[in-house]
Write a protein that binds this DNA or RNA. Structure first.
Lengths: 231, 231
DNA sequence: ATTTGCAATCTTGTCGACAATTTTGTACAT
DNA sequence: ATGTACAAAATTGTCGACAAGATTGCAAAT
């Protein structure tokens, strides 16, 4: 019944952080929700110490907020913060994609095609877990081609942050269709030499969810705290 | 004799991490040097627990490396890693400066002038600690004008990382002179409307130390471990 | 009926001690 | 003399218990 299904070889704090991040991404933990250490310790059958470490990790990733002597809760973002996050993502993805030498290596393209196949299968099956997984992998492998590992990690971090803040609430039919189309266009562009077009699609790719999520947030601006509704 | 001079109101781990970062920046801790938890605990008259937390923080900032059951040591960067770090810095600083609305707010410019005065005084006095401090502040206030707090933090993080990896070993006469001149040019450009020129100087500003540091690293590539020299 | 003060309870923060692992030092065999 | 096996020391990793602080519930006074 514990949430850590994978191999438990590594750092316990890391495992717990990943599991909690999954929970947030998949919408099982809502923004504003409080995370009590002891509960988590029991759930993961780990010591409170490790849970603490995991929560620290999540705090530094920016997806959770920690108030002294008041515990941690899933971070609730303001409209402005969301806008800033997407702004950074656009910068990072544009610049990273511009650094990809075109035409790209054939082996890399083949790998991306294979990953995208798995992505499309997951979309067909409606398996959110695997959709997120393969989508993540696709972008990781794509931006790895920029040749700068550090930049790749930055791109990944802010991509993960985006998933965390909006959950998979916007992974609806039409979005997934658009995503699928974008991925195919990207693969096509990797075979050509038009870096600018590739950069453009990499930026365009994140616009739909950005627009929808911002509209969603602005649609209900008067929420002081609606998570723990009184009665 | 402890390294924490400032007000000790906040998180102990944070204070310790800052103090250690200072040590690294000012060259009191060389790359590859091992950091034993108990020593640090005694030096900061804190519990080993807090030292541990501080070291975790430094590890996540990327300026220290932690090997399981083998302790942490000041990270030693490869030439390629350094190159990647500067590449990211260039991207971040260029994009951030391009987002500054020109001409900039008069109050902000006045603040920068005042900070730069203090910087020049510190340079005159040869006070490395204050040089680093005011230089940091100058860039913080400059890039704050980009209007994106998140991006500002990214710029700061990678600026700090750069200071950490090369220490203040390259804060020599000529560099400091060039820095001073760059700062004045930046202030001048903030009053005009040429965003591109501002972006260019923001990127040029970090070239001297980058070039020198890379030359230094490539000059002695065969160092397996020279830190703890035998006898 | 509302508000203020206090006490009980719950949650997080901190510490010291013990366990697991690596490193170092030494003796022995080849 | 060199290399290997084993024991001792040192260092990090983990845990449970206690301390400090915050929240909640209740009672009494206005």
């Amino acid at each position: 019944m514990n949430g850590i299904g994978a191999s438990e070889g590594g750092d316990p704090g890391k495992e717990i952080a990943s599991a909690l991040e999954q929970d947030i991404v998949l919408g099982r933990l809502a923004p504003g929700e409080k995370l009590r250490e002891e509960d988590l310790a029991e759930r993961f059958s780990a010591s409170r110490h490790h849970v603490r470490e995991g929560l620290n990790r999540l705090e530094r990733a920016g997806i959770v907020i920690k108030e002294r002597n008041r515990g941690v809760s899933v971070r609730r973002f303001t409209v402005d913060e969301v806008r800033q996050i997407y702004e950074v993502r656009e910068i990072l993805q544009r610049q990273a994609s511009l650094m990809i030498r075109l035409p790209a290596d054939a082996g890399a393209i083949a790998r991306l095609v294979e990953i995208n196949d798995r992505y499309e299968n997951a979309v067909e099956a409606g398996d959110f877990q695997r959709i997120h997984e393969t989508n993540d992998l696709f972008h990781t492998e794509l931006f790895r081609l920029c040749g700068n590992e550090l930049l790749l990690n930055l791109v990944k971090n802010y991509m993960d942050l985006t998933y965390a803040i909006r959950g998979s609430a916007f992974g609806h039919r039409e979005n997934l269709e658009t995503s699928r189309r974008h991925h195919r266009i990207m693969i096509g562009l990797l075979q050509g030499t038009d870096s600018w077009a590739l950069a453009q699609i990499c930026v365009d790719h994140i616009q739909p969810t950005k627009t929808q999520y911002l509209a969603f947030l602005e649609g209900r601006p008067r929420n002081g705290d609606e998570g723990p509704g009184p009665d």
